[in-house]
Computed example of a mutant assay.
Amino acid sequence: MAKSKDARVAVILECTSCVRNGVNKVSTGISRYITQKNRHNTPNPLELKKFCPYCYKHTIHREIKK
């Protein structure tokens, strides 16, 4: 089947502080969220402030490639 040319695409948001500083010694992962964005209205990579359960605070989560 051909790929759909929908405006909405699924994106993965990853915690920037977990990736940058390495994961905390207590935790064993990196916070990731899955959401959707409109490709036509938001062509740039998405950045949202979300809660990271590994950092125990709200941090910036950036869009990563699948």
Rank of each mutant, 00 (worst) to 15 (best):
M1D: 04
A2K: 11
A2M: 06
A2T: 11
A2R: 06
K3I: 07
K3Q: 14
S4T: 02
S4E: 10
K5G: 13
D6R: 14
D6E: 15
A7E: 15
R8G: 09
V9D: 05
V9K: 15
A10S: 09
A10E: 12
A10C: 04
V11H: 06
V11G: 08
L13C: 07
E14I: 01
C15M: 03
C15W: 01
T16S: 13
T16F: 01
T16C: 06
T16D: 14
T16G: 12
C18T: 08
C18S: 01
C18H: 02
V19E: 05
V19R: 02
R20W: 09
R20H: 07
N21S: 06
N21D: 14
G22D: 13
G22K: 08
V23T: 08
K25W: 08
K25A: 14
V26P: 00
V26S: 11
S27R: 02
T28H: 12
G29F: 02
G29P: 04
G29R: 13
G29Y: 09
I30H: 09
S31N: 05
R32H: 12
R32Y: 07
R32E: 05
Y33C: 01
Y33I: 04
Y33E: 06
I34T: 15
T35W: 08
T35S: 14
Q36M: 13
K37I: 11
H40V: 11
H40S: 05
N41K: 13
T42Q: 15
P43R: 08
P43M: 12
N44C: 08
N44L: 10
P45V: 06
P45L: 06
P45F: 06
L46S: 07
E47S: 03
E47L: 10
L48T: 03
L48Q: 11
L48N: 02
K49D: 11
K49T: 04
K49Y: 12
K50Q: 09
C52H: 05
C52G: 00
C52M: 04
C52W: 03
P53Q: 11
P53Y: 08
Y54C: 00
Y54P: 04
Y56E: 14
Y56R: 08
Y56H: 10
K57E: 15
H58F: 12
H58K: 11
H58W: 12
T59K: 08
T59S: 06
T59Q: 14
I60R: 06
I60H: 11
I60N: 13
H61C: 05
H61P: 08
K65Y: 03
